[in-house]
Structure formats: C-alpha cells, structure tokens
Amino acid sequence: MKKPILEENAVLSVQSCQKLYGINRGCQDINFDLYPGEVLGIVGESGSGKSTLLNCLSGNNQPDHGAIIYRDSVGMAQDIYEMNEARRRLLMRSEFGIVKQNPKDGLRMRVSAGANIGERLMAVGDRHYGDIRTKAGDWLTQVEMPKDRLDDMPFEFSGGMQQRLQIARVLVTRPRLVLMDEPTGGLDVSVQAKLLDLIRSLVSELNLSVIMVTHDLAVARLLCDRLLVMQQSRVIEQGLTDQVLDDPQHPYTQLLVSSVLTP
C-alpha cells in the first residue's frame, strides 16, 4: 500500500478519481483538496457526473482509479477505500454526514423524529435514553423546529421540515465532513431561502467542511466558497465562487451562467 499523500491542513483530497459507466459517463480526472470550514460546490447539468462523484466520496461507490484520502479526527490520513469496510462504515456514520436530496431516502419514515435524530448516537454507542432524548430535542431547536414535535413521525412533516430533520439527524454526531446532494431541490423558494440560511449558519457555527452538489447557481453563490463545474464526467473549470460565476472562462460555464433566469 502506498502511503497516502495529503497536504497539511486539508481534510480531504481527491486524486485522479475515476468511475466510468461508459465513454464520458460517470466521472474522471477529478482532483481537488478540501480544507476545514470550506464549502465546495459541484455544479453542472444532469448527467455530468456530480452524483457519481458524490457517491464515490461517500464510500458507496468504489472508484475505478484514483484515491480519496481523508484525514480523520486524530489526524491520520488514509484512503477511504483502503481501510476495511467496518472502519469505513463507522467513519460514514460518525465523521461523515450525508444529506440526501429526497428526505425520504435519508430518514426512517416510520420512526419518530426523535429516534431519527437519536439513531446515529445509538449507532456510535450511546445507551442513555435521557441523554439521547435531550440531545435530539436540542438539535430539533437548532434546526428551528418546535421541540414538541419530537415524537411525531417524519411523514407528518412538510418537505422543508423533513429536510431540516434530515440535517439534524446527520449533524447530531458532529461530523467533520458533510456531503449534500441538492439539499434544497424540490422545495419552494421561500422555504429554500430559510433552509439555506440555516445551512449557512450551521456551517459557520460548527466549522463544517461541506461538499454540495447543486444545479442551482443561486444556491452555489450563496453558500459555496469554491466551485467545481462539471460537464460530461470532467471538471472543466474550478475556482472561487465569485470568480467562476462573474468571470467564467470555459464556454460551457459561460452558457451555464447566462442561462440563469432573473425575475
């Protein structure tokens, strides 16, 4: 096993990651580093490989080539696909957090909100009911939901609230790296705005490192420090968000930026 190389300070390093399902379908030649507290946006059209990349990062989809190196909380850098499965899955439910686009995929719809939030605590060994419940209640308030809904079922919540619940469920174990797949997709604009506000304040409060897939450039501008633009499985442009959106270099990025409707 070759020793993983990871720049000092970086939390995550993706090195020539490739996962292809066909010619230019999937993702290839992906290289980037992620630093603590940074929000990295991945934008691009449908089918450009954003979700494939995110699945590779979340340990669900082993890349054909390349390395995904993560520095854990004790400072050890390791390729997430080189470690054994038990360790990888433990990381995924403690130090990684994954927020799905559709809250139904990320929540257990048939157990209460409290149990949804508490699940990750119990999964990492919490065995005190009172403590779990207090923490679940605290997180419900953190995501601006009333505490008295702790025992309600997720299907009784609106779409926006389900998404908040999902975020609480992921953040309760204090992950260091959060992967979000279109967290505001399918929500109406006002709900979206509130959720974005919430995510922004949580990110700065908890000093989270976030990788967020979105195809909404407005969301990207609001939240992301840095952007990767993907097209046909490759990263075609990357840089600071303002730089990419205000002065796009690649023809595709120019097209993407100019196709945003302004009311």
């Binding site: 257990r108 157990v111 508490g118 699940e119 065995r127 009911y129 419940r133």
Partner: peptide, 21 residues
C-alpha cells in the same frame, strides 16, 4: 452485513420508540 460488522446500534431505535410513546 450489519451482523458481520456488529453494527447493532439501530436495535436501540426500537426500544427508544417504545419509551418515547
């Protein structure tokens, strides 16, 4: 897989639900 890797934390979700309700 959960048995193989001894991932039994979720078993307590059921007990949690009982106490909550």
């Amino acid at each position: 897989k959960m048995h193989a890797l001894e991932e039994y934390g979720v078993m307590h979700v059921k007990l949690y639900e009982d106490i909550a309700h």
